[in-house]
Amino acid sequence: MSFSSLSRGRKAALSTLGVLAAGGAGLAFALHRSVKASELELHPPSYPWSHNGLLSSLDHTSIRRGYQVYKQVCAACHSMDYLAFRNLIGVSHTEAEAKALAEEYEVLDGPNEEGEMFTRPGKLSDYFPKPYPNPEAARAANNGALPPDLSYIISARHGGEDYVFSLITGYCDPPAGVSLREGLHYNPYFPGQAIAMAPPIYNEILEYDDGTPASMSQVAKDVCTFLRWASEPEHDHRKRMGLKVLMISGILIPLIYYIKRLKWSVLKSRKIAYRPPK
Score class of each variant (00 low, 15 high):
Arg33Ala: 15
Ser34Gly: 05
Ser34Phe: 10
Ser34His: 14
Val35Trp: 04
Val35Gln: 10
Lys36Gly: 12
Ser38Cys: 01
Ser38Ala: 06
Ser38His: 07
Glu39Asn: 09
Leu40Arg: 15
Leu40Cys: 09
Glu41Asp: 11
Glu41Met: 10
Glu41Pro: 07
Leu42Tyr: 03
Leu42Ile: 12
Pro44Ile: 12
Pro44Tyr: 09
Pro45Met: 12
Pro45Phe: 09
Tyr47Gly: 04
Tyr47Leu: 14
Ser50Leu: 11
His51Leu: 06
Asn52Tyr: 14
Gly53Asp: 03
Gly53Phe: 07
Leu55Asn: 10
Ser56Phe: 05
Ser57Leu: 09
Ser57His: 15
Leu58Tyr: 10
Leu58Ala: 12
Leu58Glu: 00
Leu58Ser: 05
Asp59Tyr: 13
His60Asn: 14
His60Ser: 12
Thr61Ala: 15
Thr61Phe: 08
Ile63Ala: 01
Arg64Asn: 09
Arg65Cys: 13
Gly66Cys: 06
Gly66His: 13
Tyr67Glu: 03
Val69Met: 02
Tyr70His: 07
Tyr70Glu: 00
Gln72Ile: 04
Gln72Ser: 12
Val73His: 01
Val73Glu: 07
Val73Trp: 01
Cys74Lys: 01
Ala75Gly: 10
Ala75Val: 00
Ala76Gln: 11
His78Arg: 14
His78Asn: 08
His78Tyr: 03
His78Phe: 07
Met80Ile: 06
Met80Ala: 12
Met80Thr: 03
Asp81Gly: 07
Asp81Tyr: 07
Tyr82Met: 05
Leu83Met: 14
Leu83Trp: 09
Leu83Ser: 04
Ala84Glu: 04
Ala84Tyr: 03
Phe85Val: 03
Phe85Ile: 08
Arg86Gly: 01
Arg86Thr: 03
Arg86Tyr: 02
Arg86Pro: 00
Asn87His: 15
Leu88Lys: 06
Leu88Ile: 06
Ile89Ala: 00
Ile89Gly: 11
Ile89Pro: 05
Ile89Glu: 02
Gly90Ala: 06
Gly90Ser: 02
Gly90Asp: 02
Val91Gln: 08
Ser92Ala: 14
Ser92Ile: 11
Ser92His: 05
Ser92Leu: 09
Ser92Arg: 07
His93Asn: 15
His93Pro: 04
His93Ser: 08
Thr94Glu: 04
Thr94Gln: 04
Ala96Val: 14
Ala96His: 14
Ala96Gln: 14
Glu97Ile: 08
Glu97Cys: 05
Ala98Cys: 03
Lys99Met: 12
Lys99Ser: 15
Lys99Gln: 15
Ala100Phe: 03
Ala100Pro: 01
Leu101Gly: 02
Ala102Thr: 09
Ala102Ser: 08
Ala102Asp: 07
Glu104Pro: 02
Tyr105His: 13
Tyr105Ala: 06
Glu106Leu: 12
Val107Phe: 14
Leu108Gly: 01
Leu108Met: 13
Asp109Leu: 00
Gly110Trp: 08
Gly110Asn: 04
Pro111Trp: 09
Pro111Ala: 10
Asn112Lys: 00
Gly115Phe: 09
Gly115Ala: 08
Gly115Cys: 02
Glu116Gly: 00
Met117Pro: 00
Met117Ala: 06
Phe118Asp: 10
Phe118Ala: 10
Pro121Asn: 09
Pro121Val: 11
Lys123Ile: 13
Leu124Arg: 04
Leu124Lys: 03
Leu124Glu: 07
Ser125Ala: 12
Asp126Tyr: 10
Tyr127Arg: 05
Phe128Asp: 02
Pro129Phe: 12
Pro129Trp: 06
Lys130Glu: 13
Pro133Trp: 00
Pro133Asp: 13
Asn134Leu: 05
Asn134Phe: 07
